[in-house]
Design a protein around this nucleic acid. Structure first.
Lengths: 246, 246
DNA sequence: GAGTGGTCTAGACCACAGC
DNA sequence: CTGTGGTCTAGACCACTCA
């Protein structure tokens, strides 16, 4: 079926749909296609790249599977916005064991500009002792505190975040994305367990030594640039993560 | 493109490939197709069910994604055997933080026939006070104990498992599947955290109150029948579970 | 060589969104 | 109405496995 040669650089032994995937991945990672953007339609991509519609469809299906794109029938294909509902913290069911969603309200007792601790600077790939916006938050279910968050933001990337003028909603990333216009692209999370030290125990109103689930999160903006490191500690007694093995 | 009507019961609004998926799923769940079996080839299924090859391919691709099937080019498509490497416990990196696989050797201090505790009977969907094979195991990395497993097997389904004649290897399911010829199909796991009580602390050689990661597992044989409940406790200091959010 | 799955194409028809 | 993605088909060619 000789109708032409793909106009994108191919590679021997590499399936064409992978080439198309990589092309789209590059467009996204470089920021040419930003979260929320509409990407060209299947047929446009097919003619532009000189491959068949089926090949484009397969490439897009794979990227949809990776949650980098999403599609709406009749509308088009879009670049995904990050969805923090995919955080491991959705497995905290504070209070109701029925699995109903429980709203967690957050307060912000500490917010200040400071010099970043060495480990944090390293994680954020920032120079030693660079400026950070440090934010501490406590999450409540009703009146009872259930989690503590400590966040360090690379101050150079989020100018104004430290200002008390800027109100921080429960989902903090909304401020950064909508008000400061800094795109949040992805995040890595690591889950472990710990026991409560004295200060954590008192704010969470648990016994000293009570079990905690600890979630470390590294958040990235465009071009694979880390922008925030966060460590969240929550009561273990209401955490459960379920999977299926096959 | 009228070449015939699918010979499997369809449903209005339901895509054909879903119908094919459901057909294969039923064949697997009922036990007609057992783990390890070779299923009919794409073309055989296509003519048998009177749908196109592409539709069969899409159905199979979806089931491969669900890890219910796997394919080998040039050989065929097979029903998956359960893979306990998918257990959440693969995220325990005992000792080496480099992520290298570390072999955990297991011993079996307790093995006996007993009356099942009420909660266990309920989980295994067995009558009150039914007979269970209770097995307790300790996992070691080198000389240091790192985890404790307590398992209850529905005795009626695994005759002879309690016998001391039967040697239990590190992967216990091998005995059940290979020697007792009882298929293991899938398992559900729930992860939580706890602190060590006195007996656990002494066997694991940690302080009383040290953080533990707890994994509850319900294992199923054919026809969705639960066969084993297991609770594993491991030291939290060497557990970390990583994900990516997008 | 025969049979399997893997890739790729071309094109039909449908359901849905939005003007 | 047009354009989008979703489903389904038919068939070509390739790569791999095994007798």
């Amino acid at each position: 079926m000789e109708t032409g040669t793909p106009s994108i650089p191919s590679a021997p032994g590499k399936p064409l749909y992978r080439v198309v995937e990589d092309y789209l991945r590059r467009e996204i990672d470089s920021g040419k296609l930003a979260p929320g953007d509409l990407i060209p339609s299947e047929s446009e991509l097919a003619t532009e790249l000189n491959v068949s519609g089926g090949t484009v469809k397969k490439a897009i299906e794979n990227l949809v599977w990776e949650r980098r794109l999403y599609r709406h029938q009749g509308k088009g294909t879009y670049v995904s916005r990050i969805d923090f509902n995919n955080s491991l913290f959705r497995f905290f069911s504070y209070g109701t064991h029925s699995g109903n969603p429980v709203r967690i309200h957050k307060e912000t007792p500490v917010r200040k500009l400071c010099e970043g601790p060495p480990e944090i600077c390293q994680k954020l790939q920032a120079p030693h002792q660079s400026q950070m916006v440090y934010i501490e938050r406590v999450g409540y279910r009703g009146e009872t505190p259930v989690l503590i968050e400590k966040c360090w933001w690379a101050a150079a990337l989020v100018p104004g975040l430290e200002s008390e003028e800027v109100h921080i909603p429960d989902l903090m990333y909304a401020v950064v994305v909508d008000q400061l216009k800094v795109p949040i692209v992805r995040a890595e999370e690591i889950l472990t367990a710990e026991i409560a030290d004295q200060t954590t125990a008192t704010t969470l109103k648990v016994d000293l030594g009570a079990p905690l689930v600890v979630l470390n999160r590294l958040t990235y903006t465009q071009k694979n640039r880390p922008i925030e490191f966060r460590i969240t500690r929550g009561r273990a007694d209401s955490f459960s993560y379920r999977t299926e093995i096959r």
